[in-house]
Computed example of a mutant assay.
Amino acid sequence: MSTTRPGRTADVAAPLPTVLTLGLARTRIEVRQFFRERDAVVWIFAYPIIMLAIFATVFGQGDARVGATGTFAGIPFGQYFLPGMVATGVMLSSFQNLAITIAVERDDGTLKRLRGTPLPASAYFLGKIGSVLTTSLVQTALLLLVAWTAFGIPMPTTAQRWATFAWVFALGTAAGAVCGVAFSSVPRTGRSASAVVTPVVLVLQFISGVFFGFTQLPGWMQDVSAAFPLKWMAQGMRSVFLPDQFQAQEVSGSWEHGATALVITAYLVLGLVVGARTFRWRRRDDG
């Protein structure tokens, strides 16, 4: 016999949390874990700022004249160097961070244990992406603040330039994140992850016009770097922080926003496809 009183409905079980809710909760966990790793925080957050400080101080008295002719007045080298550091910061926070941390989590069994919980895989990846977006925003904000206050580097003054910054930043962060997830399967162990991932990032910086004027690099190096997204991210950021006349010193004579969006989007799709096919929750020796 039912004991439910007339006019009252039976108790209804609370609805299960959605994937988005779980992803947001996982994001908070990932962000806390990130800031507990002090060496990673120092490297990812401080590296772009330290490099900017070094180059802006050493070359602070000179002008950045890009190209062979130098037919127009230069700008402080720190201003020319800043876009490359913004692009590098995005790559560190997204690609390098995820490629190393996921490899470590796979090696120490964290991924295996997570796979055995009710947490959906999609919520785990949403947490990683949310963490990357959060850390990238904080790191970039700190870099721009130091560049503006400590070195007097002017910030963009038009909505159009900030809009360009927004889509290059968002697209670059997304592509870096998914490529980091895909590349995390390359290191054989968590201990070897830094040794495998960090050289890739450093080489890309040197050939992508981060430390030098891109047109000053050998032609073959320009061709190689054009096949990777960091070159296009740096070029996109140059269109934000440099005067318009500097686009004449690019290889094509323009900022190539269309090509920038196309290449970075292609890496976003490629990272998704490769990551979906190669991602592993267990070590190679764990079945």
Rank of each mutant, 00 (worst) to 15 (best):
G190V: 01
T157F: 01
V224K: 06
S192L: 04
T101P: 01
G176D: 10
G70M: 05
S192A: 11
G70K: 04
A248Q: 13
W162R: 03
R191L: 09
V210L: 15
A141M: 08
T71R: 12
A103V: 09
Q235V: 14
S252N: 14
S185A: 14
Q245P: 06
V12I: 12
R282Q: 10
A14T: 10
D39Q: 09
E30K: 08
R28T: 01
Q160T: 12
R191V: 05
T69S: 14
P6Q: 09
S225C: 10
N97S: 15
V104D: 01
Y80G: 15
L202D: 03
G271E: 09
I102P: 03
I153A: 07
Q247G: 07
A121Y: 10
L242Y: 06
V178D: 15
P199D: 08
L111Q: 02
H257E: 11
L242G: 11
S254K: 07
I29S: 14
S252H: 09
Q61G: 15
A123R: 07
F279C: 04
L111T: 00
I153G: 10
R113H: 08
P187R: 01
T117Q: 12
F228S: 02
M85T: 01
R65E: 13
L20N: 05
T71Q: 13
S136R: 03
F59S: 08
K231A: 14
L143G: 04
I50H: 03
A159M: 11
V224T: 07
F77I: 10
V201S: 05
M51K: 04
S184K: 00
G74P: 02
F241K: 13
V181P: 06
R113T: 03
D285Y: 01
G89D: 12
R282C: 05
A266L: 11
F206R: 02
A166I: 13
L217A: 04
T110D: 04
A14G: 05
F34R: 02
G70L: 06
V251G: 01
L20K: 02
L114I: 08
A248H: 13
A40C: 08
T215I: 14
Q222W: 13
Y47R: 04
G253Q: 07
A248P: 03
D223N: 13
T4M: 15
Q245T: 12
L126R: 02
P17Y: 09
L145C: 06
G74T: 06
R26G: 09
G180M: 03
L137K: 02
P6S: 06
V197Q: 05
P76W: 00
S254I: 11
G236F: 02
L16K: 11
A46D: 07
G7V: 05
A73V: 14
L52C: 04
A227M: 11
K112P: 02
S93Q: 14
L52R: 08
I54Y: 08
L24C: 00
G253M: 10
M237V: 09
A121M: 08
L52Q: 04
V12L: 06
I100T: 00
T158P: 04
I153P: 01
M1Q: 10
V263H: 08
V201G: 00
V269T: 07
